[in-house]
């Protein structure tokens, strides 16, 4: 196996580790929530807008400014991901030297060390960001909508134009680059943070909304997709791929599958159903009399609904009965 394939395999492994960490984090850690607010459609619209605009903006920014923006993002991401585990101060104590090291490594030309530390930081950030989204109520339809938008975006930006390619060259080898990397220039092997986030996000949302089976299925789909891409690289059929194009379509497909398989159940009001099925028989109440019904049987009578409810309680019925007026 050549070095390129080893690098791709390493990246796939890192993504799987990220998914595993995110699933464990979801099970064990409760992130602080903002006072009010859920992840709603407008948030997705804002995110998509930023996603479309920012790469163009970055291409026109000085590299130092791009580094600063990503550095702040990584620092904040590390801090809020680690704070629930080791406390706010502990998180700062970890995030600060990690970020400082990336800067030092860049100026010292320790490219391998920079790459490794940045990869670890991005794994932690991806774990935190995806958990933040899921734990603030990001629901499957929103993820599916986001994924659908990303299909269009990635197809255009990566597949049909040079936006992603130019962006990769811009951030190649700089501190806090939003790319998981197995090798920098001259022949970079990298995977965008957006790809990592979406590969991680859907399994979490699937587990939370549809259960473990859906989560396992989502991870299996991720693995199969990464295997297919790896095979494409191995055979030379592809040299790059807009990963979000197939991934987005697969997420949308999974969403429709699970939505159909596990429909939203509107609870039935059993006491009312039982009362409507009831046949009073000899207990037929007189016109103007109220009856209390429990499990289809008359358990109380009265001149008013409250009185009928009370006689039911006096008769030993602990549950709240249904009251109905005697049929004329």
């Amino acid at each position: 196996m050549n070095h390129g394939l080893q690098g791709a395999l390493a990246l796939d492994t890192v993504v799987l580790v990220t998914i595993g960490l995110a699933v464990g984090y979801l099970a064990k850690v409760r992130m602080p929530r903002p006072p009010a607010g859920l992840f709603v459609r407008s948030d997705i619209v804002i995110m998509v807008a930023l996603l479309v605009i920012m790469p163009f903006a970055y291409l026109d920014m000085p590299a130092a400014l791009v580094c600063t923006v990503f550095g702040l993002t990584v620092f904040v991401g590390l801090q809020f991901t680690l704070a629930p585990l080791i406390g706010g101060r502990g998180a700062v104590a970890v995030a600060t030297p990690a970020c400082a090291f990336e800067i030092v490594a860049y100026f010292a030309h320790w490219s391998t060390a920079l790459m490794l530390v940045n990869d670890v930081a991005l794994v932690v950030v991806a774990t935190g960001v995806t958990n933040l989204w899921v734990q603030t109520g990001m629901r499957p339809p929103l993820v599916a909508g986001f994924a659908a938008a990303l299909v269009v975006y990635d197809t255009v930006a990566t597949g049909l134009s040079s936006v992603t390619s130019d962006f990769m060259h811009l951030v190649n080898g700089i501190p806090f680059a939003p790319m998981l990397a197995a090798r920098y220039t001259p022949e970079p092997i990298m995977m965008g943070l957006g790809d990592t986030l979406m590969l991680t996000l859907w399994p979490l949302v699937a587990i939370k909304s549809y259960g473990r089976a859906a989560g396992i299925c989502a991870i299996a789909v991720d693995v199969l997709l990464m295997a297919a891409v790896f095979a494409g690289f191995a055979t030379g059929a592809i040299t790059y791929i807009p990963l979000l194009t197939p991934l987005g379509l697969l997420i949308v497909a999974q969403y429709f599958y699970w939505r159909r398989r596990i429909p939203v159940v509107v609870p039935v009001r059993d006491p009312l159903e039982a009362a409507l099925r009831a046949s009073y028989g000899e207990d037929e109440p007189a016109d103007g009399t109220w009856v209390a019904l429990h499990e289809g049987k008359v358990v109380g009578r009265g001149d008013s609904p409250g009185a009928a409810r009370r006689t039911a309680r006096e008769a030993g019925v602990a549950e709240v009965p249904v009251t109905a007026l005697g049929r004329p």
Binding site: P32, R33, P35, A36, L38, G137
Partner: peptide, 23 residues
């Protein structure tokens, strides 16, 4: 809209988020 947001948050999570009382 903020009142609606708080209601939606409570209905989703069972309680408002951290520091909601400070509002």
């Amino acid at each position: 809209a903020l009142a609606d947001d708080v209601r939606a948050t409570i209905e989703e999570f069972g309680s408002a988020g951290d520091g909601a009382g400070d509002m």
